[in-house]
């Protein structure tokens, strides 16, 4: 479903990303962990064709992302607030994204309404521009917008950061549900080992742009990860 081959990205002498081969099969929930500067965001940006790798290619469902734009129809993503259009209201932003997927206003409204619980009454009908929401609420908007258009692949960078505890739990449930009901392939990064261990079946640890661990989740995964990061 998602494959990365020989990807390399160098920024002025520092290697940001240097991956041999990574394949993520359909329906897998894939967690990415690593310290700051490990290359998580760089990898996400390569996957979404936001930066051009110095070598190698990324494919989503066998489409080379730098060659064609067709992957955008089945890929939902939220990396940071640069994905939001901050002078629109939350509703207008959802309608805009929906429009890009050929959905009418009513269809989008209906879709977004099912996230009422996730929004915790803080997003819809507030009469505020996106820029006036708090960081956590902006993140909620970004995550739900990424789900519009029923994506087969979902890419989220640090989705748990800045969220309040209740929303973190709701998000975990939401992601689990997406996996069970629709077999969405999910790629999620996090600094919080427990969150990522909980929602992922497979966890990859990046360090200085390279994969240093690639493990299927077991009961001991969280402990292993903690001891790995403590040792450094």
């Amino acid at each position: 479903m998602v494959s990365v081959e020989q990807i390399r990205k160098v920024y002025v002498e520092t290697v940001a990303l240097d991956l041999e081969k990574l394949h993520i099969p359909k329906g897998e929930s894939f967690g990415l962990v690593g310290n700051n500067g490990a290359g998580k965001t760089t990898m996400f940006r390569c996957l979404l064709d936001l930066i051009k790798p110095d070598a190698g290619k990324c494919s989503l469902k066998d489409i080379d992302v730098s060659k064609s734009e067709d992957w955008k129809y089945f890929t939902g993503s939220y990396l940071d607030e640069r994905f939001l259009i901050d002078f629109l209201t939350a509703e207008e932003y959802f309608h805009f994204i929906g429009r890009l997927h050929g959905l009418s206003k009513e269809e989008v409204d209906e879709f977004v309404d099912q996230f009422e619980g996730f929004f915790n009454d803080e997003i819809l009908g507030k009469g505020k521009y996106v820029r006036d929401f708090s960081k956590g609420n902006q993140k909620k908007i970004g995550i739900v917008a990424a789900l519009i258009g029923s994506p087969e692949i979902l890419i989220l960078d640090e989705p748990f950061a800045n969220l309040d505890p209740s929303t973190q739990i709701r998000l975990k449930n939401l992601l689990k549900k997406l996996k069970e009901e629709r077999e969405v392939t999910m790629i999620i990064s996090s600094h919080d080992l427990s969150h990522v261990a909980e929602v992922s079946e497979r966890i990859v640890v990046l360090e200085h742009g390279k994969i240093v661990h690639d493990i299927q989740k077991t009961e001991n995964t969280l402990k292993d990860l903690e001891s790995y990061f403590a040792a450094e």
């Binding site: 064709d49 734009e69 955008k72 993503s77 994905f83």
Partner: peptide
């Protein structure tokens, strides 16, 4: 400039 990344990653044809 503030939302250019978003436009690129979304389903906007150039």
């Amino acid at each position: 400039s503030a939302h250019f990344d978003g436009l690129l990653a979304r389903n906007v044809q150039l």
